[in-house]
Design a protein around this nucleic acid. Structure first.
Length: 383
DNA sequence: AACCCGGGGAC
DNA sequence: GTCCCAGGGTT
């Protein structure tokens, strides 16, 4: 069932709203920004609450409203005074954006908080979530205010499988919210969701036995509360940079075997040394030049410092570059060619004729490196 | 879409 | 220690 909210009829939606709002009116916490209808105060509180816990915000909110009681005061605020009040809250661009938006309101909206969702959204520092929160709480607009908290609650309510880590997943939550939001008390409804999310429908161990809307919750009915929300780990593969050496001695190449544990355990590859991105970029720039695509460039005096201590005469250009993406790592490997000029101590390594490479287990990056090497060998006939 | 911004609480 | 945020701007 992909859009479970579509199965709710009008009657069910109405009783749901009544049940939920009745709970909220009884249980809602007394917070300073809930004791006012001032759109300015509600705005300030919503900005402060971004990425910040309620308990932390309360003190800051009082001090801020005392220092800057009106939009005009904020628009005229000294930046240093503003940042001083914000000190310790973090995300200081929020404070700078507040002042910019206050000046916007003075200049464009006659000093009063605009009342349409589009105009609210046009203010600096106000995105879809905050616009929905201000619009619904201060002006009674039937707009959803979708943040991570609401997505958690709503994903459980309807077993929404969309990955909340993706921006495109906003759509189903917006659609579901517009179906169930109370048209009469949208602000109360949105705040009820926030309270539920922070106190009952918590991330790891939701207190379903205390939940006022568990009888409406599909995840609860299926005992799948902890399957939601679906959220992919960002885990962008981390960039790692290596220099690989194809070291030749009379038709054989030096291969080393990886440790018996860990990544690519026990597999064989050219000697690798990790370098910083800066070293990598420098080698790439210095050592690749089209006009050097001839073979007479092996220069004794230009031995690479990359493999310290190895008696190898390196050729002063790289022989190709490969990248390989693992689940958590992205390898960037620059391949150099060199010839043995002295005894190389063999530890977990062997000399292998390239005709015998098929007898070794090569991981994909090593296979790619061999391909690069072959390409250059074709270019350079007497290689 | 990816990255940046800050701090605190939960685990 | 690491994870997770009551997001929005910039590029």
């Amino acid at each position: 069932m992909s859009k479970q909210w579509e199965t709710w009829d009008e009657e069910k939606i109405k009783t749901f709203q009544e049940t939920f709002l009745t709970w909220y009116h009884k249980e809602k916490r007394n917070l300073p920004w809930r004791a006012t209808n001032d759109p300015y105060a509600i705005w300030i509180s919503e900005i402060m609450l971004q990425q910040t816990r309620v308990e932390t915000v309360i003190g800051y909110f009082y001090r801020f409203m005392e220092q800057f009681p009106t939009i005009q005061d904020l628009a005229a605020a000294e930046e240093q005074k503003l940042l001083k009040v914000w000190e310790g809250l973090g995300y200081y661009s929020r404070a700078r954006n507040l002042k910019a938006a206050a000046q916007q309101i003075v200049a464009e909206f006659d000093g009063e908080m605009p009342q349409s969702i589009e105009e609210i959204r046009s203010l600096k520092g106000i995105g879809p979530y905050t616009a929905g929160a201000i619009g619904s709480i201060a002006f009674g607009l039937p707009e959803p205010a979708i943040d991570g908290n609401v997505m958690r609650v709503v994903s459980r309510l309807f077993c929404i499988e969309a990955d909340i880590a993706k921006a495109s997943s906003r759509a189903p939550f917006d659609e579901a919210m517009r179906t169930i939001i109370s048209p009469d008390e949208p602000g109360e409804f949105n705040q009820a969701l926030m309270d539920l999310g922070s106190r009952i429908c918590t991330p790891t161990t939701p207190k379903c036995e205390e939940c006022p809307i568990s009888q409406y919750c599909l995840a609860y009915a299926e005992n799948r509360q902890t399957d939601f929300p679906v959220k992919s780990k960002k885990a962008k593969p981390k960039d790692v940079y290596y220099i690989a050496g194809a070291i030749e001695d009379q038709g054989s190449f030096l291969l080393v075997q990886r440790p018996k544990t860990g990544l690519l355990a026990s597999m064989w590859h050219f000697p690798l040394v990790e370098v910083t991105k800066e070293q990598y970029d420098a080698l790439q720039r210095t050592w690749v030049k089209e006009e050097q695509l001839q073979l007479d460039l092996i220069a004794e005096e230009d031995a690479l410092e990359i493999f310290p201590g190895l008696p190898v005469v390196w050729q002063k250009r790289h022989f190709g570059e490969i990248t390989h993406i693992f689940s958590h790592l992205k390898w960037h490997v620059l391949l150099f060619y060199g010839r043995k000029r002295g005894e190389i101590p063999l530890q977990d390594s062997e000399w292998a004729a390239k005709e015998s490479f098929e007898n070794y287990v090569f991981p994909k990056p090593q296979q790619k490196l061999v391909e690069q090497l072959k390409k250059y060998q074709k270019l350079d006939k007497d290689f």
